[in-house]
Write a protein that binds this DNA or RNA. Structure first.
Lengths: 227, 227
DNA sequence: GCTATAAAAATAGTAATACTATTATTATGT
DNA sequence: ACATAATAATAGTATTACTATTTTTATAGC
């Protein structure tokens, strides 16, 4: 199973890239190295020039894969959510009880690397940190609506859809399932950001230990029909 | 009262700027025009050069007020939270019941412009939109820890503290008051962002009409000691 | 009204970024 | 062996994000 997962191809909207980075060794290296570099130096300091030097290639070559570093970021993020969907589905397979499934799903979102999975050319540990520290920048732009229309965020939205469906399985009449789902997903990463940089603003520690159980409890209490 | 509020000086940490923009007409114009420009063109397209042209002045002159556009953004955000604290306090004055106070406070965070307040040189409407669309960029950087140590985010953190205190007044034993508070504040803006750009991910409309009541309900249900 | 001082404006310049274009070289598949 | 595509090398541009220097203008005290 581990082996199967390792070589699985994550589907990423092909409008994100100019040339599929999975289609060549160089492409894979671009992805691999950019994860390390963005993780260690931050998105703003990261440039195609620096990446080109690291890869002993040229800027223009990288530009044949990605239009700009913003698109590269979207690629990484989209890949992440695409990958997480597999994890979510696999982890919750055979779970019939919707409450248990919700718990399992939220736990997966909060601790995606629990299974210690490895991947061919993508290092998940730093990628997850990029998600925590940088991913919001992908849609906090003036181009968000066009890019959204082009489907660049669909992998992200599918994760939301699954959570929404799960919540509605538990309480079909709850009117704020969408809002709750997006809060869960956002918080699963943002609370860890706060733990890293604004510990006063959270009760979660850096490992995110109680995060999952907190979020599950919040959801269940919130959607419970009281009578 | 309106008049009093209009001329009130919002306290902003003086490490954010090089020269206090409130101290001169030009400084006020820098703030005023930058709000309009960032709002209309987005933070990335906004430059000191363009601002200088708009103000018929030069880049170097603007640089005497702010180190760079990032600091200017932090200034605007910090001013906003500083101002919101006044609003929060004023709106909840004389409310003794902590549950009622929480409702009032959250309502203020979600609908800060309800009182149709005007301000001397700061246009609150576009500023609020900047908070919704751009404010996360202020701390999603590699410099966040140094800037946080320097107190650049203290106005923001004080808002959190008030909410935390309020939650603890209702249930002193609830162990996740900090986490819940930061989720509330974050969601009060982020759900409106989603309403604008990802309506499928929220049940809130663009005016944010049910947002306050949803958040209040979520908090109250979550912190309720069930027995 | 004169002068010191500070603020602002004008001017110039630099290193880095975010690209684009052109040509030469190398690899690959038939 | 040849066509094709990918990559590398080289060069260049507009813009950004600054810094430095000098000149002009405004202000406040004497």
């Amino acid at each position: 199973m581990q082996e199967l997962l390792k070589s699985i191809q994550i589907r990423v909207n092909d409008k994100i890239y100019l040339k599929d980075p999975e289609s060549s060794e160089l492409g894979k290296n671009i992805v691999r190295r950019s994860i390390d570099m963005i993780h260690s130096m931050g998105l703003e300091a990261f440039t195609f020039k620096k990446l080109a030097i690291e890869l002993s290639t040229t800027e223009s070559t990288i530009y044949r894969y990605f239009e700009n570093k913003h698109k590269l970021l979207i690629y990484l993020i989209s890949w992440y959510w695409g990958w997480l969907e597999y994890e979510m589905v696999l982890n919750s397979i055979n779970i019939a009880d919707p409450v248990e499934k919700l718990g399992n799903t939220i736990e997966t979102i909060c601790h995606p690397l629990k299974n210690n999975i490895e991947h061919d050319h993508i290092n998940l540990q730093p990628l997850h940190k990029i998600i925590i520290e940088e991913s919001n920048k992908a849609f906090l732009t003036k181009e968000v609506d066009i890019e959204n229309e082009d489907g660049l965020f669909s992998n992200y939205k599918r994760i939301n859809d699954r959570l929404i469906k799960n919540i509605k399985e538990i309480n079909p009449h709850y009117p704020y399932a969408n809002t709750l789902a997006s809060i869960i997903i956002d918080s699963s990463n943002h609370q860890r950001f706060l733990a890293n940089h604004f510990p006063r603003l959270t009760d979660i520690d850096k490992t995110g230990s109680d995060l999952g159980s907190f979020l599950v409890e919040m959801v269940l209490k919130t959607i419970k029909t009281d009578r």
